[in-house]
Computed example of a mutant assay.
Amino acid sequence: MDFDKPVAGGPCWTELGTDDLESAKGFYAELFGWRPETDPRQEAGCYTVAHLGDAAVAAISRLYQESQPVAWNVSFAVPDADAAARLVEEAGGTVVVGPMDIFDAGRFAVALDPTGAAFQMWEARAFPGAGLLNAPGALGWVELATRDTGRATDFYTTVFGWNAESSEWYTEFAVGGQQFGGMADMGDRFPPEAPPHWLPYFAVEDVDTAAAAAVAAGGTVRTAPMTVPDGQRIAVLADPRGAAFGVFRPGRHG
């Protein structure tokens, strides 16, 4: 990721929805050194913000509804959530929640792109999003897995104004000339029932050490540590409740 603070159109926040809040707080605190702080207000529903030092870096929340899977979600910064929601609909996506105010923090919406991948949009007010990006323990890359890369590219470039640069096996996304994420075709790498999805990657000092630490803390390794063609080392892990996330050592984009 080429920026260390949120920018318009780029990823600004990531949030885990889980059915075991306490387990998640302990797992990620051990893995990334996060300091979780749970909002004491009853209406906040135990929403927990994880910090590195004084910087908010991610959130852990209870599931909002029974049909919601245990999974990480990615939010993109928008100047106007209502206008962005209209663009989503016009471009063939679906708005499934909101837009709605979240206290005085900002305005929020959840949407599905035309290929079925869920994502969130955040119009910042009192809360700008992550106070730190692309540093160890913080969000550093986001990746879309989908079965229709062409349709997804058309959608996101229309809604967020992204630039897309594609190779034979991967597409990189940028906003304002700054790269922040990519897209891969799901192909045969996923079972047919696996839905398209966004996956957050957290920066770490050492990918192999992080993978071992995740297993020791009760998680699993979905994709073993490997070095990709541009020289970065990555792995895909899952927490004890099965929520997948990636880790990587910042390289060309760090």
Score class of each variant (00 low, 15 high):
residue 105 A to L: 09
residue 174 A to N: 10
residue 194 A to P: 03
residue 191 P to D: 11
residue 135 A to H: 12
residue 111 A to E: 07
residue 156 Y to S: 01
residue 106 G to A: 07
residue 164 A to S: 03
residue 126 A to I: 01
residue 174 A to V: 05
residue 88 V to S: 00
residue 160 F to V: 02
residue 143 E to R: 03
residue 167 S to G: 15
residue 166 S to F: 07
residue 188 D to P: 01
residue 166 S to I: 03
residue 126 A to L: 12
residue 150 G to Q: 09
residue 86 R to I: 05
residue 101 D to Y: 07
residue 107 R to H: 04
residue 110 V to F: 09
residue 196 P to Y: 05
residue 75 S to C: 11
residue 130 A to F: 12
residue 160 F to W: 06
residue 149 T to H: 08
residue 97 V to C: 01
residue 85 A to N: 08
residue 128 P to K: 13
residue 179 Q to R: 15
residue 199 L to S: 08
residue 109 A to M: 14
residue 100 M to Q: 15
residue 179 Q to G: 15
residue 166 S to G: 06
residue 93 G to I: 03
residue 104 D to V: 04
residue 120 Q to G: 04
residue 160 F to T: 03
residue 77 A to M: 13
residue 172 E to K: 13
residue 104 D to F: 09
residue 83 A to G: 07
residue 84 A to S: 15
residue 113 D to W: 00
residue 165 E to W: 05
residue 138 A to N: 09
residue 165 E to Y: 04
residue 203 A to R: 02
residue 184 A to G: 15
residue 155 F to K: 02
residue 196 P to E: 06
residue 99 P to T: 02
residue 132 L to Q: 13
residue 102 I to F: 07
residue 95 V to H: 09
residue 190 F to P: 01
residue 125 R to G: 09
residue 144 L to A: 00
residue 94 T to E: 13
residue 132 L to F: 10
residue 102 I to H: 05
residue 153 T to E: 14
residue 106 G to Y: 00
residue 148 D to P: 13
residue 168 E to T: 10
residue 102 I to W: 03
residue 179 Q to N: 14
residue 101 D to H: 10
residue 189 R to Y: 11
residue 89 E to F: 02
residue 192 P to N: 10
residue 192 P to D: 14
residue 190 F to R: 11
residue 106 G to D: 06
residue 104 D to Y: 08
residue 110 V to A: 02
residue 143 E to H: 01
residue 153 T to F: 03
residue 97 V to I: 14
residue 190 F to K: 04
residue 82 D to C: 09
residue 120 Q to F: 05
residue 76 F to Y: 15
residue 176 G to T: 06
residue 111 A to S: 14
residue 188 D to N: 09
residue 116 G to F: 00
residue 203 A to Y: 00
residue 179 Q to M: 13
residue 86 R to W: 05
residue 180 F to Y: 00
residue 167 S to L: 07
residue 113 D to V: 01
residue 163 N to Y: 04
residue 203 A to I: 04
residue 201 Y to A: 00
residue 121 M to P: 01
residue 102 I to N: 05
residue 198 W to L: 13
residue 144 L to D: 04
residue 84 A to R: 07
residue 172 E to S: 15
residue 198 W to G: 10
residue 74 V to F: 02
residue 85 A to L: 10
residue 115 T to G: 11
residue 92 G to E: 01
residue 157 T to H: 04
residue 123 E to M: 02
residue 107 R to D: 02
residue 96 V to K: 13
residue 105 A to F: 01
residue 199 L to E: 11
